[in-house]
Design a protein around this nucleic acid. Structure first.
Lengths: 150, 150
DNA sequence: CACTCGGTGGGTAATTGTGGGGAAAGGTGG
DNA sequence: CCACCTTTCCCCACAATTACCCACCGAGTG
């Protein structure tokens, strides 16, 4: 189950967002009708169930007294909700997640291998632009990229 | 019985807080009409009965002569109260717990797998903001998160 | 040019969340 | 032991949100 590609959609006033047809097919062919969705780093992370199960196990292993990681678990794990497809293949994004990711109208959905991400289109473009700029100014970044073999 | 997601509600002047409908369904479908609620780490911890039973057993195993753990048992175990749903699915939070968690008007309820937490919304947002800030500045934290495999 | 498929938008009924009023229960001081 | 005040319980009513429909529109295709 590998998610690839970038898609642009609109989120409507009710908070419904279309899921790219190829992603939906992948999920439904594995017998699922819903996804897990949570928030991290200015966007929403979306996982199929088997992947989320793996993550939840890791999260559960963090003791609630871990002052450093507990906030992460609360933010990342605690925000996760299960969302089901409607008849047209959309999912309803809860208000708190919508607000976190700044989703208002145009959104970008980006395949990231075992998960995909939902971005405010504007925020995503900004983030891309910031990166391009940084790349021209930061040799260390450029080196790390070439070290990746690209 | 897995509690997931973040919900925002208001606590009214009488101290009643709504329980998220999905959580309520989980609890009621297992034949229960009440929850156990106690205080820990600036928020309230809420458990269904079977989970609380497990915890109570652990607490009971601490000898009262244990100078280090006894205060924890007294605070955590001793503050626990059973609260029942009213007809609209709310629970009444006793004044002392309300005060401990700083619940005044807006609250966040956060699913944490086998339990859920009740936070003052403002306090929770602060904690999230602190975490986000820490994340950008602390490579060690970033590493610990990526070590979780996310 | 029909037809399908993918994406968008809306209406309506049911559910969920919020706020109060008044009766019952419990606690306090005389 | 009683009067009084406060807190809790139980009911109802309204507002907001969500779930579940179905309609439309445009692009690509036989």
């Amino acid at each position: 189950m590998m998610f690839r590609g970038l898609f642009e959609y609109t989120i409507d006033p009710k908070g419904r967002v279309n899921v790219p047809a190829p992603f939906r097919d992948l999920v439904q062919k594995s017998g699922q009708e819903s996804l897990m969705i949570t928030k991290f780093q200015d966007c929403l992370y979306v996982f199929p169930h088997e992947e989320w199960a793996r993550i939840e196990e890791k999260l559960a292993s963090v003791p609630s007294t871990d002052r450093q990681l507990a906030p992460f678990v609360r933010s990342f794990g605690g925000s996760a909700v299960e969302v089901a497809f409607d008849k047209q293949g959309r999912v309803l994004v809860p208000p708190s997640l919508r607000a976190y990711a700044g989703l208002e109208k145009d959104v970008a959905i980006i395949g990231m291998q075992r998960r995909f991400e939902i971005w405010s289109l504007q925020r995503h473009q900004q983030s891309c632009a910031d990166f391009e700029k940084e790349l021209t100014q930061n040799p260390e970044l450029a080196k790390r990229i070439s070290d990746l073999g690209i």
